[in-house]
Amino acid sequence: MPKLSIVVPCYNEEETIPLFYPAVEKVVKQMPVDTEYWFVNDGSSDGTLAELRKLHEQDPEQVHYVSFSRNFGKEAGLYAGLQAATGDYVVVMDADLQDPPEYLPEMYKAISTGEYDCVGMRRTDRKGEAKFKSFLSNQFYNVINKISDTKIVSGARDYRMMTRQMVDAVLSLTEYNRFSKGIFNWVGFKTKYLPYKNVERVAGTTDWSTWKLFKYAIDGITDFSEAPLAIATWAGGLTAFISIIGMIIVIIRKIIEPASSAFGWASMVCIILFLGGIQLLCLGIVGRYIGRIYMQTKKRPIYIIKEKK
């Protein structure tokens, strides 16, 4: 019988874990698979680890967990879970039940045919989510799909079931700065997306603020596109061209009207501020990429395990 590994990154999910496990168990017991759970405690500050210990004591053969020495981020938690999983198929889920377990049989049915290497879930709406956050998310997908060769399906979540071959391919990418939505698509393999309506958290509050999502989006863009560097290049070239035109205008005006004064200190200050702003923007973009190179060359581990069962 094939084995299904269920990977669940957790950060401050004390309230949701007792609800998540029985909800998923109710579904997978009806599926023709052996199962194992790999919960990853990402340095939670609440009682998440205690709840995971309880689950492991209840079923030590099936329920396992990895606990980090501190918070390393969801991407690190996801990577650790994939490394620990031993199943023929691996599914990634959130502990808050926003990834409906009832779709697991349909996902397994599609992937077990051998026609697909991955079956993912795609939200068709964002009901219950703040409108501004939804707007930013939609704009992110529009932007990254225009400037990157790696296309990301709008509304696609990390909730997906993958074959062992695809999981191994994902694990072969050992980059320090990880953006899994892009990595899942970059490695290729045939993927089928199942649509579903948005589901709200069963308990607790999300840790993903608008600011954190914005930074995550920037990480995704810089990981999978060189367009910002091209923008910096074009911005520098354009401002240099405008500056040359400006100097020519000043010289011609001085020749035609020798008695005329310069354009004035106000216009000069505006020009200086404009050019300075462009330079800082370009330096910031280049610095972003250099910073990521710097972190990669340090070869620090993506995560550090404190406890594993």
Results as ranks from 00 to 15, higher is better:
31 M>G: 03
46 D>N: 11
4 L>I: 07
7 V>H: 05
201 R>H: 10
280 L>E: 08
266 A>R: 08
213 L>R: 13
63 V>E: 04
13 E>F: 06
254 K>G: 01
193 Y>S: 05
237 G>H: 06
86 T>F: 07
98 Q>A: 06
154 S>P: 15
145 N>L: 06
123 R>V: 02
85 A>H: 12
12 N>R: 13
245 I>P: 00
30 Q>Y: 08
286 V>M: 14
274 F>D: 01
87 G>N: 10
74 K>S: 12
238 L>N: 12
142 N>Y: 11
5 S>L: 12
45 S>G: 04
130 A>H: 11
73 G>A: 10
153 V>Y: 08
154 S>I: 09
173 L>S: 09
139 Q>G: 09
8 V>C: 10
48 T>F: 02
5 S>N: 09
218 I>P: 04
163 T>I: 07
12 N>F: 05
248 I>V: 13
54 K>V: 07
87 G>M: 12
82 L>Y: 06
49 L>Q: 00
159 Y>C: 14
232 A>H: 03
141 Y>K: 06
216 Y>S: 13
271 I>Q: 07
81 G>R: 07
16 T>K: 10
280 L>G: 01
97 L>E: 06
27 V>D: 11
136 L>Q: 08
137 S>I: 07
101 P>A: 00
90 V>R: 05
294 Y>L: 03
91 V>R: 01
211 W>N: 11
81 G>N: 07
235 A>V: 13
285 I>H: 03
35 T>A: 11
187 V>Y: 03
59 D>G: 04
266 A>W: 00
65 Y>R: 05
207 D>T: 13
107 M>E: 02
255 I>D: 02
148 S>A: 10
27 V>K: 08
288 R>V: 09
118 C>D: 06
21 Y>A: 14
118 C>P: 00
232 A>Y: 01
49 L>A: 06
61 E>H: 11
91 V>T: 14
76 A>L: 05
186 W>F: 14
1 M>T: 08
32 P>Q: 15
54 K>C: 10
3 K>E: 12
236 G>F: 01
279 Q>K: 15
159 Y>M: 10
287 G>C: 05
62 Q>C: 12
186 W>H: 14
280 L>Y: 07
293 I>C: 02
121 M>V: 08
242 I>A: 03
184 F>G: 03
4 L>A: 04
83 Q>H: 11
147 I>T: 02
160 R>D: 07
135 F>H: 11
76 A>T: 05
30 Q>M: 13
170 V>Q: 07
39 F>I: 07
154 S>L: 13
89 Y>C: 08
301 P>N: 01
190 K>L: 03
187 V>W: 00
21 Y>V: 14
56 H>M: 03
143 V>G: 00
193 Y>Q: 04
182 G>Y: 02
128 G>V: 05
72 F>L: 02
188 G>T: 06
213 L>T: 14
71 N>P: 05
200 E>L: 10
171 L>C: 02
11 Y>D: 04
110 A>I: 00
180 S>L: 11
99 D>L: 04
180 S>T: 14
169 A>E: 15
71 N>T: 12
197 K>P: 00
62 Q>I: 10
131 K>A: 12
297 T>H: 09
10 C>Y: 05
277 G>Y: 02
120 G>K: 01
95 A>R: 02
43 G>A: 09
16 T>Q: 12
127 K>C: 01
103 Y>L: 15
259 A>I: 07
141 Y>N: 11
173 L>E: 14
99 D>C: 11
